[in-house]
Design a protein around this nucleic acid. Structure first.
Length: 657
RNA sequence: GCGUCCGUAGCUCAAUUGGAUAGAGCAUCGGUCUUCGGAACCGAGGGUUGCAGGUUCAAGUCCUGCCGGGCGUACCA
């Protein structure tokens, strides 16, 4: 028997008491009803149409319509020559809600079939989740090996605010897929072999500032060398581009451009020499690389992002010539010479070919990506590879994937089954609505953003939340405790710094993750660092309130989680909270469908909102008996799920803030 | 030119991929404040979803045309 719809199709349990979702249970019910409908001859439904119809089960737009809704009656009606409403009635007649749902009554509007979860079923599901270390979310039935390629900064090139997207989105997807039960392999595909290194080599040779480097640069602290390399990169880039308006603003670059008019070509020559194994360039590269990697590690570690592997472009360098030879020898691919370069003509003669070797003999991004793909196929045998990369590289990935399928990447049988996905994200725009240029020198640096986020979070801790006193005392005077808002727990300076780091970092990550990854967004310091409203701080605050209840009440949470006592959901706030808690698994499933972390942020915001309303309306510690225990159980589960949900986004939580 | 993505409230963004009355945050205005933490809660105002057609039970979403913009378009990554 095959179930349909979402994970149900992969044989997951439908029972919300055993890690299934209510949504899957509803889908299972509709599937059975539709099969009966077809058997009874009301309307013929082909087996292959069933999943699509059953997937039309979703949560309702408004609680007044119940909790879940099926819309397939309206689509089916025409085929059967029935009115949508009559078709809905035929379906309802065959729908068995079991002991999970209120018996459906009659269709609403043009033919919506609405279902409401029974209160006792919801309460039992909450208790089951309370007892479950995974909080009611079962792992996927068929785990896959998923390689996620993200981060991938260019070394020796300073990171700016546009660089956090790949890192933050990729890290969140890795965590979520792992929690879902997949075997996830993360790889930081560092740009350590490209043209930017040619710029640095040229700069090192022509305009290195010796006052910053006396004898042996490797004796210098990491920060000094990397800062000088960054300076050289920015400078040489301007000289090589030789744009009059840029040179007009930078006398040093202008002077160099006048002295070395052929810098652009020379930079490419330095790159080519490095690739050919020129001893001097190779030695410099080896000298710089540990510092560059240390610098990158430092930033990623501050972001709490780690990778299973960091195999940069240089790692694949020895394989590139072989890849090109293979592609040329393979008639299925037909790579050939054109205008001195070597390319693959995927779209016929008219469309631009996929170039894999330049006329000067140097290899390209595309060559490295093909070698990388082959290496990953051989060593990791993935079912899926996700590339979390800027959407502007869409055409590159189309060509890459098309070539990979033609070529086979060393395993022609296997490649057909591998899902290659460009998880594209939009561009970060400046306040003027134009993209931040990686190449423009004056963008907001990533580290400055992180520092400012932490600083603002720190200031918030000292902000008096009551209205300003009449005597106009300054609100922020640097004092760490005296003017803290009443009711806030006391913290020492070290704790405060820790909290500020978590909250500040969370705000920045959340600001990015909460938007649809595919749309461009306008970067705003203030928006990025906001701490009220729909922000990570809102969820972190809800967690801290949960913690506050348990510490103030001296509650034994371990005992609470083993309690066999049921919960009661008699108020609207308790019911709404409970229902939201049970949708954790649905949210995670939906994230994976399109690799969209903002589905999770939106749901977490809903959940935290339900908790805040619950918290505001109903006493917990001051409630009595079974009611108190029931509410404590809801608090515990909410705290755990919020914490886990944030963790899956790479965002930390604190017990006090 | 061709390809591609986009245009939603004053601002920044959502919208379960064709579903019900297009939702949030910020900003504005009003209320909650002797009860577990006010980074909170409750409420109000604010929209011809760029424009014009079309498809159907149903369109911000799909199709056509126009207007405006982003990005890409052979040896950067």
């Amino acid at each position: 028997m095959t179930a349909a719809g979402g994970d149900a199709g992969r044989g997951l349990v439908h029972d919300p008491l055993r890690g299934g979702t209510f949504r899957d249970a509803v889908r299972g019910m509709f599937q059975a009803a539709l099969e009966r409908l077809s058997a009874d001859g009301v309307v013929r439904i082909a087996a292959e149409d069933l999943p699509g119809l059953v997937d039309q089960v979703r949560e309702t737009a408004d609680p007044k319509f119940g909790d879940y809704s099926g819309t397939m009656a309206m689509a089916l009606a025409k085929r059967a020559g029935l009115k949508p409403r009559d078709m809905a009635i035929e379906i309802i007649r065959r729908l068995d809600g079991g002991d999970l749902f209120e018996p459906p009554t009659e269709p609403v509007g043009p033919g919506f079939i609405n279902l409401r979860v029974r209160e006792d079923a919801l309460a039992r599901a909450v208790v089951a989740a309370l007892h479950d270390p995974r909080m009611g979310v079962a792992p996927v039935a068929e785990p896959e090996t998923v390689v996620i390629d993200f981060g991938g900064p260019n070394v020796a090139k300073p990171m700016h605010v546009g660089h956090i997207r790949s890192t933050v989105i990729g890290d969140a997807l890795a965590r979520i897929l792992r929690f879902r039960g997949h075997r996830v392999i993360t790889d930081n595909h560092l740009g350590d072999w490209g043209t930017q290194f040619g710029m640095i080599l040229w700069g090192w040779k022509h305009c290195r500032d010796d006052s910053r480097f006396t004898a042996d640069p490797s004796a210098k602290p990491t920060a000094e060398l990397t800062a000088e390399l960054a300076r050289l990169y920015r400078l040489v880039r301007k000289v090589a581009d030789a744009k009059p308006e840029e040179l007009a603003r930078d006398p040093e670059a202008a002077a160099l451009a006048a002295r070395y008019p052929d810098t652009g070509r020379e930079v490419l020559a330095e790159t080519a020499k490095l690739h050919e194994g020129d001893p001097e360039n190779r030695a410099l590269w080896e000298q710089f690389m540990p510092f560059c990697r240390a610098e990158i590690d430092r930033i990623f570690s501050r972001l709490h992002v780690s990778f299973d592997h960091a195999l940069g472009e240089s790692f694949y360098q020895p394989m590139l010539a072989g890849v090109v030879a293979e592609l040329m020898a393979d008639p299925a691919v037909g790579a050939r010479e054109s205008r001195g370069a070597i390319g693959i003509f995927l779209g016929g003669e008219d469309a631009p070919p996929f170039l894999i070797r330049k006329a000067d003999g140097a290899f390209l991004y595309s060559t490295t990506d093909l070698a990388t793909l082959k290496w990953r196929m051989e060593h990791w045998k993935p079912d899926r590879i996700l590339y979390v990369v800027d959407s502007r590289q869409g055409p590159h990935f189309e060509q890459l994937f098309a070539t990979a399928k033609l070529w086979g990447c060393g395993d022609r049988h296997r490649i057909d089954g591998v899902e290659l996905v460009h998880v594209a994200f939009g561009t970060v725009l400046g306040e003027d609505g134009k993209p931040f240029k990686t190449r423009a020198g004056d963008t907001v640096g990533l580290e400055a953003l992180l520092d400012e986020g932490v600083e603002r979070a720190g200031r918030m801790q000292h902000a008096g939340d009551k209205p300003q006193p009449a005597d106009g005392r300054p609100q922020h005077d640097g004092d760490t405790t005296q003017h803290a808002a009443e009711g806030r727990p006391a913290m020492d300076a070290a704790e405060q710094r820790h909290v500020a780091e978590i909250v500040g970092m969370g705000a920045i990550k959340y600001a990015d993750l909460s938007q649809n990854r595919t749309t461009d967004y306008v970067f705003s310091f203030d928006k990025m660092l906001q701490l009220t409203g729909n922000t990570a701080a809102y969820m972190q605050y809800a967690v801290a309130r949960v913690e506050g209840i348990f510490s103030k009440g001296g509650i034994d949470r371990a005992a609470l989680r083993q309690s066999t006592q049921g919960v009661s959901l008699s108020t609207p706030q308790e019911r709404a909270l409970a229902l939201e808690l049970m949708r954790f698994g649905e949210a995670l499933e939906d994230v994976e469908i399109d690799y969209r972390p903002n589905v999770l942020t939106a749901w977490l915001y809903e959940l935290a909102g339900c908790y805040s309303s619950f918290y505001d309306a109903l006493p917990v510690l001051k409630a009595e008996g079974a009611e108190r225990d029931s509410r404590l159980a809801l608090c515990d589960l909410t705290g755990r799920i919020l914490r886990e949900g944030l963790e899956l986004l790479g965002i930390g939580t604190v017990e006090k803030m």
